[in-house]
Amino acid sequence: MALRAVSRRARRALVGFLRQEASGGYVLMAAAALALAIANSPLAPAYFRTLDTHLGFVLGPVHLRETVLHWINDGLMALFFLLVGLEIKREVLDGQLSRPSAVLLPGAAALGGVALPALIYLALNRGRPDSLGGWAIPSATDIAFALGVLALLGSRVPASLKVFLTAIAIMDDLAAIVIIALFYTAQLHLAYLAGAGAVLLALIALNRFKVARLWPYLLLGVVLWFLVLKSGIHATLAGVALALTIPQRGGEHPPLERLEHALHKPVAFVITPLFGFANAGLSFAAVGFSALLDPAPLGVALGLFLGKQCGVFGVSLALIKSGLARPPRGASLVQLYGVAVLCGVGFTMSLFIGALAFSDARLIEETKIGVLAGSLISALLGLLILRTAKAHAD
């Protein structure tokens, strides 16, 4: 009986997640389009000046002063990563990733979709130490954008493919978290790192003692965020660490479920659109589309468009043809290929990693061109394939 209740909760959470991510994707698209319009209008100086404005506070020994852009990327995006961590934990414990048989196909496909884009980028940027660090930029799928495109097709796409895409995107996010922790960490400050470890142990103790109230976790989470920020590890990883300590069990509405529900709308309709608005602003007067042929943006664009679809579909096809995995129920190989193409929509996480990978302003701007071009082409082609896939169904 308890297992059935957990299963029902997992299904409800997945349905709500798909609906909200899809609608949040439309808001994110609008925010990105608005940023591009403003960055190429007379309002551009005010837009860029606002993002570069420094804000901060002093509270005893705590002294923080960052630009508006950094507050969005290092502060608000910690809540995005907290939600990502909660979703990963729920899916692994009770959801689509809790059964090994259900993990094999999307897990292997996600791995192919992370590795091949990185290899394409590295091949195009070999011998260029200034841009080589951007290899991970085309490795991530933007679940909000991708599900938003899928939602445009309604019932033409089997629900199993939406679940498949969601599982791949969640695993992509997990891979991105590991990549950020391992490869995009600045010089470590051991005192702050030790303090963060102590706070993390306190959070684990709260979990072990079955504390169901959320406020102690969130209060310690703020302290953890500050210590991680000061330690040299990217501050958003504090959100993931906090998520892993939130209890999954406890009453009819467990703490993890309550926090995930509370975060969904602010993240989907405020935080990620604000991130998109702050990071997608690209002035074509400064960096034109001709820059797309430079190695870094070309590596990003081709990594997203070619690397993602070939990695995801190639691995999926190999597993299905070998009999090691079954295709998503009710889906043809053409539809599966269409979803693999959609995996090349890498907006949010790609822009985020791009901002971490480079300190050179021109490379960051060129990265935006690559992300926008690769994501847009992937979205349009994926939409076209899935709209016509029924006529070519196997």
Rank of each mutant, 00 (worst) to 15 (best):
F164E: 00
F164K: 03
L165M: 12
L165D: 01
A167M: 05
A167V: 11
I168P: 01
A169K: 05
A169S: 01
I170C: 01
M171T: 02
D172L: 04
D173V: 07
D173S: 09
L174R: 00
A175T: 10
A175Q: 05
A175I: 11
A175N: 06
A175P: 08
A175K: 01
A176F: 01
V178G: 07
V178E: 13
I179A: 11
I179F: 09
I179K: 06
A181W: 04
A181G: 10
A181K: 05
F183W: 13
F183T: 08
F183E: 14
Y184P: 06
Y184L: 04
T185H: 08
A186G: 14
A186E: 15
L188G: 13
H189P: 03
A191I: 10
A191C: 06
Y192C: 02
Y192P: 11
L193M: 09
A194F: 07
G195A: 06
G195C: 02
A196N: 12
A196L: 04
G197H: 10
G197Q: 01
A198L: 12
L200R: 08
L200I: 12
L201V: 09
L201P: 08
A202T: 06
A202N: 03
A202D: 01
L203V: 05
I204M: 10
I204A: 11
A205Y: 05
A205R: 04
A205V: 08
L206H: 07
L206W: 14
N207W: 15
R208H: 10
F209Y: 14
F209S: 09
V211K: 04
V211P: 00
A212S: 12
